[in-house]
Design a protein around this nucleic acid. Structure first.
Length: 445
RNA sequence: GGCAGGUUACCCAAGCGGCCAAAGGGAGCUGACUGUAAAUCAGUUGCGCGAGCUACGGGGGUUCGAAUCCCUCACCUGCCA
């Protein structure tokens, strides 16, 4: 039902601000609206923050509206001003490569068939050939310095020690230019984005009003938060990446499964497409049986399926069940075990290799000193058995199915030591470091 | 172009000649308690088993000894033009 999409989005907590809500509601209920959201290539992949935007695009498309995903081949070369300080410019080659990757990523979330088929656009197409003089005459004349300086991010940066470059200051004009261009080319009348982009969205709304005499809309999503006040989406790898190369589907699934009780219901509303009834049932489940973590599992399954597909999700659920299940690891069959450890960081070891080295090689700790510290703190495990000595070694008897020993730091940082003998030739022969200095003797774990 | 201030570990920030691998806070990690959650308390956080090594923007000096003093370069910020 197209008519109710705004209410649906509100209930889900996906709307922070809109321009004239009455007019926007009328437009959304009156027919198919062409809308857009921009994604700047500031990294090789999109992340959790962009995911909210992608989900919003999807909701609107499902409601019968027509999405345009804009990749910022041009704006990515400039960089929008952040509070934290001036950006380091990336090379044109880098930005071009990232633009391509991101365009491919975005496409997975949209439907390119049917009457409201999606489209991907690149703002480099209309800015690359724009001369500085034309830009200043045709666009710049519509911008008032007072308004530009008053933009929150700009004002903040001006008052900070770092200040702000003309390059980043100009960003808002480029984004306004995009909205106008998309309006002229495709009849786009709504731009969506994160709430921190509000000023940049308004830039386009104002430009179109001044230059074209037409009123268009803007709508933002709120910043996703965590109940404990820490930053949403912060992980060891920096962000929750949507690209499987930057963050494995297993790690991605684990991120969502680890959602706090206080966060999981709001996140279900935002990140899953489950119905109101289903989400309310899961909210009850959290209240009544929090230990079962039913809502967290549902959230993780939905989001992982959306981003990585059903097959990858089934695999990581099976892996998670095996690794975090209460059953004895030794009782797992070889195939299940191999699948479960497939995603884990691994170390190739020969029987007799030290546990310290295996932990370092698997990347579970950054240094040998840190590995020793982990053991001393009682936070290192081999096959779910606490390692008690810094001289402990991985022996043949520890290898499950004759090949793997499960390494764990703390409660849930996992890795695997794979027997060099049982591993494929390439993996084991390539690293002489492990086999060269095997610990002599020492306690067997 | 001129003048002033700044650059310390993941981040903020103290230190201003030896007691500094560097206070304090944040963040991270581990343990206890748990439910792969939160809260709380405790421990821990450059590399190395160790001797020791490397580090306070880069380089060069002074000194028995430098994060600390001097010179120089780079970068950042502010003010003036």
């Amino acid at each position: 039902m197209a008519s109710k999409v705004l209410d649906e989005l509100k209930w889900r907590g996906l709307i922070a601000q809109t321009t004239d809500e009455t007019a926007l509601r009328a437009a959304l209920e009156g027919g198919s609206v062409t809308y857009y959201c921009g994604f700047d290539p500031t990294a090789p992949s999109l992340h959790h923050g962009n995911l909210v935007q992608l989900i919003l695009l999807r909701h609107l498309q499902r409601a019968g509206h027509r999405p345009i995903a804009l990749v910022g081949g041009a704006t990515g070369l400039i960089g929008d001003p952040r509070q934290s300080g001036e950006r380091v410019l990336n090379t044109k080659e880098t930005v071009a490569a990232w633009t391509e990757r991101i365009a491919a990523q975005v496409a997975r979330f949209l439907d390119f068939d049917g009457p409201n088929a999606a489209r991907v656009a690149n703002n480099l197409d209309w800015t690359a050939g724009l001369s500085a003089i034309d830009f200043l005459r045709d666009i710049g004349k519509h911008y008032r310095l007072g308004t530009m300086l008053a933009k929150d991010t700009v004002a903040r940066r001006l008052n900070s020690d770092e200040g702000i470059s003309f390059t980043e200051f100009s960003y808002q004009i480029l984004q306004g230019l995009d909205f106008r261009e998309l309006y002229l080319r495709y009849g786009v009348t709504l731009q969506t984005g994160g709430n921190d982009q509000w000023g940049n969205l308004l830039s386009g709304v104002e430009l179109i009003r001044k230059a074209e005499g037409v009123g268009v809309h803007a709508m933002t999503t709120p910043l996703i938060t965590k109940a404990d006040g820490t930053k949403f989406g912060k992980t060891e790898g920096g962000a929750v990446w949507l690209d499987a190369e930057l963050m494995s589907p297993y790690a991605f699934y684990q991120f969502w499964v680890n959602a706090a009780d206080a966060d999981v219901v709001p996140w279900l509303k935002v990140f899953s497409f489950r119905s109101r009834e289903e989400i309310e049932a899961l909210a009850d489940a959290v209240r009544e049986r929090p230990g079962a973590r039913a809502a967290q599992r549902a959230l993780a399954e939905d989001v992982t399926t959306l981003v990585h597909g059903a097959d990858a999700t089934a695999a990581v659920i099976a892996a998670s069940r095996a690794l975090f299940g209460s059953g004895d690891l030794g009782s797992l069959d070889a195939a299940t075990l191999a699948a479960a450890v497939a995603e884990l960081p691994r170390a190739a070891v020969a029987p007799g290799a030290s546990v310290v080295d295996a932990f370092v090689q698997a990347g579970l700790v950054p240094s040998r000193g840190a590995a020793r510290r982990a053991i001393a703190e009682g936070g290192a495990y081999v096959n779910n058995v606490k390692v008690t000595s810094e001289e402990a070694t991985v022996e043949a008897a520890d290898l499950l199915a004759g090949r793997f020993a499960l390494l764990r730091r703390g409660k849930r940082t996992l890795g695997v030591a794979e027997s060099a003998a049982g591993a494929s030739a390439g993996a084991s022969a390539s690293d002489p470091g492990v086999t060269a200095d095997l610990a002599t003797g020492g306690a067997v774990v």
